[in-house]
Design a protein around this nucleic acid. Structure first.
Length: 648
RNA sequence: GCUGGCGUAGCUCAAUCGGCAGAGCAGCGGUUUUGUAAACCGCAGGUUGGAGGUUCGAUUCCUCUCGCCAGCUCCA
């Protein structure tokens, strides 16, 4: 009996039934490309050794595809698990999946793995790769599989299998003495992994639940070649080099201090200046975009948060209340109730809507100590918050506006790639089906209307309404959650918000919560890493530094500084009794965009020698030339701003 | 919060077995007047995160506590 197979290029072949994928691919004498790791048969990833019994389309998988990499890393983690079992026979297997850039495996073991253990495991894993063991798949009934793993003392595997469907066979993969429960597929042999490295260890709860026992997780990664592995390791180094905690300290931008408390940030003058520039830009653009800016207090009566529902839904993340003159007050975890109260301060007409209140509002949230992280996760932070009050029929337009505005604001900071998620109704939620459908449809329509590609996150919405989350991609390709746009019908109800309609009757407005940068602290942390501390000219705390060769140029330097200051630039002069190399080194370390070297020659000719950050030589020019250079660079931001305003 | 690791000068790091706490950079004082990423000499800088304990003696060992780091969980 013969079957027909179809390849991605449209080629069709006839091969005997029972041929393996590999045989089918090479049936007409072709050589199997060494890069082929596994294959997708009728869309399902399978081993190359899988027998084919029916007509099928076959798509070979290589490391180039995400699915191919997953197979590769999955086999890599099996190799690591085998190494662990060989070196530490008492370790029990649990689970070990592939990740986007590597893999991990969780083991139940009596103690944490040490760096020395890691070396031993890695050495053994490499030896297993050299052995080139054939990886074979087998199937057992659920009962037999349980017996098999019980016999091997793998209690966690037994527990996993017990949760599986009784009817379906359980697949196992073995290589040498090592056998693991696994869906597969896998590489043909352990020799197919080229370059392999273990990276770190850490604790992880069994099934991710903190009530369960702590397992020992080992992270690693693998690539076909050492060169690719080295490139990946270099990227990890680059991430370390850009760490905002390190750069924030080195550049004297921010600090956190024990005496003040964890997750509470001090903004030093240079960090504050950058923040001021960001905030000024933010305010200007919001005013242009039809927002009204407001301020609200940092504490308020607890009753306010009872009304808003935060006491019921958010208490775990709130600081403790304080007793003032017999009533309870609460440090604010959110800005929305205040904006609502401004809305409520007088009657609103349908003609007033939409109303857009924006605030750089500082909130305080109690976060568990273990989650705090530099600027990215803190306990006191400022949200670039806004609340839009609108009629149901205005949701779509408002969301469209916000989308445009978001991409514009984030684009100004050099973020041009985004991941957009639409989160729909979760199980625990309030509100009518009509409202949920209305809001979700409006969000979807807005996304489609702006031509934004998005993914749906089912059930990931907030309890009070659906939302759009926007993640930005930084220069290293990492994604960061910043922007969120959330529809809310709960708070208008809780606070009894109303507007007078055309019909003279009261109607309930819809609220939209939105933040673009999310939190200024977090956004700043991301910016530091995105720019590696080398802020663009318009954000650099010091834009230009004048470096004198000898003290004969002091006067000239002072003149240049005052002239540039007159044009609004942030300039300093370094007239210390130091060699020019020393001054340049320091300016480089401070990542100052432009250095003006002024010596006898420049004084004579009335010019400056312009050196850009990282050594760029712009040559010698008169001050006017420099001003033109600076202006061109800052104007770029302004021009884009103007373009956005025109489209409004 | 949980598991593990780590807290020494402003910063980066030393200190053998429990035996006088040290270096580089930064700072300050001098010398040097210098041409594109570190001139030279000197001075000063510390209750070794905090509290308790063991010991003749603790940076070192033990207990507690605060903070940081990695991971888990959670999230702007």
């Amino acid at each position: 009996m013969f079957i027909h197979i179809t390849l991605p290029d449209g080629t069709r072949k006839q091969v005997p039934a029972g041929y393996s994928v590999r045989d089918a691919l090479t049936a007409t004498g072709e050589r199997l490309d060494a890069k082929v790791l596994a294959a997708k048969v009728n869309g399902e990833p399978v081993d190359l050794s899988r027998p084919l019994n029916h007509d099928a389309t076959i798509e070979p998988l290589t490391f180039e595809s995400a699915e191919g990499r997953e197979v590769y890393r999955h086999s890599s983690t099996h190799i690591m698990a085998q190494a662990v079992k060989e070196v530490f026979p008492t370790a029990q297997l649990t689970i070990g999946p592939a990740l986007d850039e590597g893999f991990y495996y969780d083991f139940a073991f009596e103690r944490p793995f040490t760096p020395e253990d890691l070396e031993k495991i890695e050495a053994r894993a490499k030896e297993i790769m050299k052995r080139g063991l054939t990886v074979t798949r087998s199937e057992l009934s659920k009962q037999d599989a349980i017996k098999f793993f019980q016999g091997r003392g793998e209690a966690y595997k037994v527990e996993l299998i017990q949760g599986f469907d009784d009817q379906l066979p359980i697949s196992l993969y073995s290589q040498g003495e090592f056998v693991d429960l696994c869906r597969g597929p896998h590489l043909p042999t352990t020799g197919h992994v080229g370059a392999f490295k273990l990276l770190s260890t850490g604790g992880a709860y069994w099934r991710g639940d903190e009530r369960n026992p702590m397992l020992q997780r080992v992270y690693g990664t693998s690539f076909p070649t050492q060169k690719e592995l080295d490139a990946h390791l270099a990227k990890l180094e680059e991430i370390k080099r850009r760490d905002h905690r390190k750069l924030g300290k080195e550049l004297d931008l921010i600090s956190t201090q024990d005496e003040i408390g964890p997750g509470l940030v001090l903004w030093h003058p240079k960090g504050s200046l950058i923040r001021l520039l960001i905030e000024n830009f933010w305010r200007e653009q919001h005013l242009k975009d039809g927002y009204e800016l407001v301020y609200s207090p940092h504490v308020a009566r607890l009753d306010l948060w009872k009304t808003s529902g935060h006491v019921d839904y958010y208490r775990e993340n709130m600081f403790a209340t304080m007793q003032i003159e017999g009533s309870e007050y609460q440090l604010k975890p959110m800005n929305c109730p205040f904006h609502i109260m401004i809305y409520k301060s007088h009657l609103r007409s349908y003609r007033d809507l939409p109303i857009r209140y924006g605030e750089l509002g500082t909130v305080y949230r109690y976060e568990r100590t273990g989650v705090l992280h530099g600027l990215l996760r803190v306990r006191g932070f400022t949200q670039d918050d806004a609340h839009l009050f609108c009629r149901p029929d205005q949701i779509e337009t408002e969301v469209s506006r916000v989308l445009d505005f978001t991409f514009f604001i984030l684009g100004t900071f050099g973020f041009t790639e985004f991941e957009v998620y639409l989160s729909t109704r979760p199980e625990k939620s309030v509100g009518s089906d009509e409202n949920w459908t209305l809001a979700t449809t409006a969000l979807e329509a807005a996304l489609k209307g702006r031509g934004v590609a998005y993914q749906v996150d089912p059930g990931e919405g907030v309890f009070y309404g659906p939302k759009i989350d926007i993640k930005i991609k930084d220069v290293l390709g990492r994604s960061w959650q910043c922007s969120t746009i959330q529809v809310d019908f709960n708070n208008p109800e809780r606070f009894k918000l109303a507007y007078t309609g055309e019909d003279g009757k009261y109607h309930q407005p819809i609220m939209i919560h939105r933040a673009l940068m999310g939190s200024i602290e977090r956004f700043f942390g991301i910016l530091i890493e995105h720019y590696a501390g080398a802020f663009p000219l318009w954000l650099a705390p010091v834009q230009v530094v004048v470096l004198t060769i000898t003290d004969k140029q002091h006067e000239c330097a002072a003149r240049i500084v005052s002239e540039l200051k007159g044009h609004g630039y942030r300039v300093e002069a370094d007239v210390r009794n130091e060699k020019i190399g020393f001054k340049i080194r320091e300016a480089e370390k401070n990542k100052i965009p432009y250095m003006l070297v002024v010596g006898e020659k420049e004084v004579q000719s009335g010019t400056v020698a312009v050196r850009g950050r990282s050594g760029a030589n712009h040559g010698t020019m008169p001050i006017e030339g420099l001003l033109a250079l600076l202006q061109t660079e800052t104007n770029q931001v302004l021009r884009e701003t103007a373009t956005h305003s025109q489209t409004r």
